[in-house]
């Protein structure tokens, strides 16, 4: 086969990979600029801090991406994070062994995902509505359970996890890798991943092709709920308290990361590496702005503008091919 033939064979793949690389390039460029501009950026303390900050949103963004690929949205993930910090805190303080408390908390996340699936598939509610409803309700339930107070977790070993690191890399970032690899395989190398795309592209065609559409939708929301619960556990470990108001606006950051990473809100387009990079771009913006002493109010404005710019160029690129 001639080189042209090979070049012509996988234009789309190359293109996607290229786009992934450009985002990664943007991230690296930001790091280099910050390292030169501020003395405190390229310190071990700051880098590990950055990795810790970005990790939580990164994991949420992966789950969010599964949902968005099916053409849906999960607005509840921030609330699930807050709620599950409460659950895991209560269970640990009640004397449960850590492993059991964590497991039970993850099951709560799965149950919330199942509820979303039920609302969408069985009750016919739009994903936006059902997850908006749980977003409000879960915070309320959490506040009722705690009476509005924070619950201090009285287990040092539980909190030690978020502070620890392996080979110089924080455990929290290892968790991202632990989530990302199976997620990548799931999305791109199993039929379930293909079904997510097909449902997002044309649910009717997928159904007529024998794809179990309801089950696929359930799966997407269960995964999103599960990953949100994992983040809840990690956040509880990091801060050492259970509080239902934690994780505020996490859902929006997760959606933004996903979209920056090339996910289409219309469904059927998305990857695992894109949202991961997207979430670290977002946390780098915040981190860098702090180091450069940019007013926190301005940080929000800048983040918003950058989302517009990045997604606009992504759109241009796609149309241009």
């Amino acid at each position: 086969m001639s080189t042209e033939a090979i070049a012509a064979e996988k234009p789309k793949r190359n293109f996607n990979a290229l786009f992934g690389l450009t985002l990664l390039g943007l991230l690296l460029l930001m790091w280099i600029v910050l390292a030169v501009a501020t003395p405190s950026f390229a310190t071990t303390l700051n880098i590990t801090n950055l990795l810790r900050q970005g990790s939580l949103i990164a994991i949420l963004a992966v789950g969010q991406t599964f949902v968005i690929i099916t053409g849906g949205i999960d607005l509840s993930v921030g609330a699930v994070v807050g709620f599950t910090t409460v659950i895991v805190a209560l269970l640990i303080n009640a004397g449960w062994p850590i492993w059991a408390a964590v497991l039970a908390t993850l099951l709560v996340g799965i149950a919330i995902g199942l509820f979303h699936g039920f609302g969408i598939v069985k009750m016919g509610l739009p994903p936006f509505i059902i997850t908006l409803a749980t977003m409000t309700s879960l915070r309320g339930i959490g506040l009722l359970m705690t009476n509005g107070n924070s619950i201090s977790i009285n287990s040092d070993s539980f909190q030690a996890f978020s502070r620890g690191s392996l080979a110089g890399i924080p455990y929290l970032f290892w968790m991202v890798i632990l989530v990302a690899i199976p997620s990548y395989i799931f999305l791109h190398h199993t039929r379930w991943g293909r079904y997510l795309f097909s449902v997002g592209s044309n649910a009717e065609a997928a159904r007529l092709s024998g794809v179990n559409v309801p089950r696929t939708i359930f799966m997407a929301y269960v995964l999103s709920g599960l990953l949100a619960a994992i983040v809840g556990v990690l956040l509880a470990s990091r801060i050492g308290i259970g509080n239902p108001t934690q994780g505020d606006t996490y859902e929006l950051q997760a959606i933004a990361s996903s979209v920056i990473g090339g996910t289409s809100l219309f469904g059927a387009i998305g990857s695992v590496h894109g949202p991961l990079i997207g979430s670290f771009i977002l946390s780098t913006i915040n981190n860098g702005a702090n180091l450069l002493n940019v007013n926190t109010f301005w940080q929000r404005v800048i983040t918003g503008l950058l989302i517009i710019v990045i997604v606009y160029f992504d759109g241009l690129r796609r149309r241009g091919k």
Binding site: R194, S198, S201, N202, A205, A206, A268, I269
Partner: peptide
């Protein structure tokens, strides 16, 4: 009803 238009030909065939 028949096709996932914004997915590749191969994925449609193998669905």
């Amino acid at each position: 009803q028949g096709l996932c238009l914004n997915l590749p030909v191969g994925m449609n065939l193998n669905l």
